[in-house]
Design a binder for these strands. Structure first.
Length: 313
RNA sequence: GGUGGGGUGGCCGAGUGGCUAAUGGCAGCAGACUGUAAAUCUGCCGGGCUCACGCUCUACGUAGGUUCGAAUCCUACCCCCACCA
């Protein structure tokens, strides 16, 4: 697929803004399949806590990118880019329209713009190194990272760890690889950003948090923990899930769970908005999701037809 | 009714004469972002003018007082909490 990149609608927006509903409404216009770009919905069994589309919704429109790994196992933006590229090619080959839908801006970027060719990192050594690093405090790691990679742009434990790993396991700094082994995007994204006035979004978030708890979020998390998933490992470290874990560990009251989730989700939604505002290359179609989903879908379908007619690259 | 403790910026909570618009935390706002990204990290955060330095106004329950100077000391009053009645 070297020649012409496939132009693909990419629907993004903060959590709870109504992406799923809009995408489903869009399916009334086009024969489409959804490629979910969501770093938490890749986890099996975390259905309530990640606000996964329901069985019915998934039956109506095929979804890709859900239930890929078990809690505790790592997924990644790079893997998503590879996987999604495959799904998209496959969907297109079947004559349907792939539509990327998701709130994980970094995943979308990895797919649309490419990351860099990551040199092989020996899993064994990496695990050992990580175990060793986890015993040091973040400040120290940041200092090491800066020493090992002059281009280290700062950050906390997570980014410092990554920087140190790459430097030690490959012999070259992370920023070297990032500059020298750049990849290119594999699709031509056509961005649609769903927005909502902050008060509206906050209200939806609060309602959804309550709903999650009512539908059994805590029990869902308890069951995953009971099966041995690490409480602070990949998957359970997300908004909503983390709060449930805290309750199950006796670190917060049951009544405080929904409220804590609401706040954390609000903050997450804000970060997402910042990302979409600054990190997404325009031109972008922005729609206020206060409008009903079918109306949004019509607007998107119309703009898409126009964009194609004009032969936008 | 009595005794003791307390009333601080949106909330919690330090501060006990000047260095205090007032430590911290939370919430909020803004920003960063190349394989853990729902993560990780940064800045701002009483109001007004200012890009900024800065200037200015209003603030530590209320009203007075002491002092060159008070959130901090004194007096009265209001309210809250605990215990005793």
């Amino acid at each position: 697929m070297a020649a012409a990149k496939l132009r693909v609608p990419v629907l993004v927006g903060p959590t709870a803004v109504g992406k799923t509903a809009t995408a489903l409404a869009l399916a009334e216009h086009w024969p489409l399949e959804i490629v979910s770009a969501d770093s938490r919905q890749v986890y099996r069994r975390l259905d309530i806590g990640t606000a996964k589309p329901t069985r019915k919704e998934r039956a109506r429109v095929p979804h890709h990118g859900l239930d890929l790994v078990d809690p505790g196992h790592r997924y990644s933006a790079g893997r998503f880019a590879r996987d999604a590229t495959g799904w998209i090619a496959d969907i297109a080959a079947r004559g349907k329209l792939p539509v990327v839908v998701g709130g994980t801006g970094f995943y979308v970027r990895a797919l649309a713009e490419g990351l860099f060719q990551e040199p092989p990192l020996d899993p064994e050594r990496r695990r050992a190194l990580e175990a060793w690093l986890s015993g040091h405090d973040a400040l120290e790691l940041v200092r090491w990272a800066a020493r090992l990679d002059p281009g280290f742009k700062g950050g906390g434990r997570q980014r410092a760890t990554r920087t140190i790993e790459v430097a030690l396991l490959t012999g070259r700094p992370l920023t070297y690889w990032q500059g020298a082994a750049r990849q290119h995007g594999l699709i031509e994204p056509w961005y649609v950003v769903l927005t909502a006035p902050r008060p509206v979004l906050h209200q939806r978030i609060a309602a959804r948090a309550e709903e999650m708890v009512r539908r059994g979020l805590v029990e869902e998390v308890a069951s995953v923990l009971a099966d041995g998933a690490p409480a602070h490992g990949a998957g359970l470290d997300g908004v909503g899930l983390r709060e449930a874990v805290e309750y199950l560990h006796g670190e917060r009251s049951r009544e405080s769970v929904a409220g804590a989730i609401t706040i954390a989700t609000r903050q997450y939604a804000k970060r997402q908005e910042t990302w979409f505002r600054h990190q997404l290359p325009g031109p972008v179609l922005a729609l206020d999701s206060v409008r009903p989903p079918d109306e949004l879908a019509s607007a998107i379908a119309g703009a898409w037809a126009e964009a194609r007619g004009l032969g936008v690259p």
